[in-house]
């Protein structure tokens, strides 16, 4: 066998093929981006183990993730928060993990997206299992998992072709995602979710910001809105009783060890907000939660500087607005004396 010859031919072809593949996707507007996966979440969850009383941890769903910009928060408070919010997830499992498996007694900002916070406590349901998978990964990750993650960072941040996100975005370009786009007929007759494209860029410090395309391209933003509409219509009715009871029990334990919790309702707009107001009337859900929790709480509607912010895809703020929202929110919380600016204390 002339394997040397075969090897050199393979090497040459593979360099040409991969370069062409990379250039093609870049020409289609794609750029290298970090995957927002469980390995990244677990890396930040590990920081909780050494966090002090002065630290702030953010839990919640994608709104707390997109709308609190880490750099702005750090500028305003002097301390970088630990961002543990997770898209499409209930914050209850991760807060439960914090309360029951750590001794952290600093400050927690807990984002309340009504459709997810009040969704369920059933472990198999999507809002629960999505974040529980991340929590489990933190405990179960092996040294090999950790080194795989670290080795993948330079590849993910420099190559477009490294795009196999565990979120399974419709515009991922790995083999499985490309095959998922092929549709022939409708054999199952199941309702089909509209294409769901990635609309955020995450950094290694888990700062998430909305992509420029989502802000500038209305058709693209509308494609995301269609997904919210689909998810809203297909969601089961809220389970306020169980979710509240679960949360309040953990909150009680957290308060007993002098932990500080802040409830936060981030902005939503358009049809999405109308839908939320219908299914989760403020007085029945948010106000009741605040009353029973008896903790500082911030609803964007209550502040003149926040209430008119508009979300390009009806659920999350653009990067610029998120920076503004973070600055203003930090200012309000500091003014209320809930947290202090560690640079000026």
């Amino acid at each position: 066998m002339k394997l040397k010859q075969s090897f050199l031919i393979a090497l040459t072809l593979i360099i040409i093929a991969l370069t062409s593949w990379e250039l093609y996707w870049r020409s289609q507007g794609k750029y290298p981006n970090l995957n927002d996966d469980k390995a990244l979440w677990a890396m930040h969850r590990a920081n909780v183990e050494t966090a002090s009383k002065d630290d702030v941890i953010i839990f919640g769903s994608s709104r707390a993730y997109f709308d609190i910009q880490i750099d702005e928060w750090e500028k305003a408070t002097g301390k970088k928060p630990i961002q543990l919010a997770s898209p499409g997830s209930s914050p209850l499992p991760s807060f439960h993990d914090l309360v029951n498996n750590t001794s952290f007694n600093g400050t927690v900002i807990l984002g309340v997206t009504p459709g997810l916070f009040f969704s369920t406590t059933y472990p198999g349901a999507d809002p629960w299992s999505r974040i529980q998978t991340k929590v489990d990964h933190f405990y179960n990750r092996t040294y090999a998992d950790r080194s795989n993650f670290w080795l993948s960072i330079p590849l993910q941040t420099n190559l477009v072709l490294m795009s196999a996100d565990e979120e399974l975005w419709s515009d991922d370009i790995d083999l499985k995602s490309l095959l998922r786009r092929v549709k022939i007929g409708d054999r199952t007759g199941n309702p089909q979710m509209p294409p769901f494209y990635s609309f955020g860029d995450v950094r290694l410090d888990r700062n998430m910001s909305m992509t420029k395309r989502t802000v500038q391209d209305t058709a693209f933003a509308n494609s995301i809105i269609k997904v919210w509409s689909y998810l809203g219509k297909s969601a089961p009715p809220p389970d306020k009783k169980s979710t509240m009871a679960f949360f309040l029990e953990d909150l009680k334990k957290f308060k007993e060890r002098n932990g500080k919790l802040i409830l936060l309702r981030c902005p939503s707009s358009g049809g999405n907000r109308m839908g939320e107001n219908m299914v989760f009337p403020r007085v029945d859900f948010w106000d009741d939660l605040v009353e029973q929790s008896d903790v500082p709480s911030y609803h964007f509607e209550d502040y003149d500087q926040l209430k008119d912010l508009t979300c390009p895809e009806e659920s999350h703020l653009s990067k610029e607005d998120a920076e503004y929202f973070t600055r203003e929110l930090a200012k309000i919380i500091i003014e209320d004396g809930i947290i202090i600016n560690s640079k000026t204390k």
């Binding site: 066998m1 394997l3 010859q5 075969s6 090897f7 393979a10 090497l11 072809l13 593979i14 093929a17």
Partner: peptide, 13 residues
């Protein structure tokens, strides 16, 4: 050898 090299490259790609 050429065909084997092509197959090898396709698999890696």
């Amino acid at each position: 050898p050429v065909f084997l090299g092509i197959v090898w490259a396709i698999m890696i790609f």
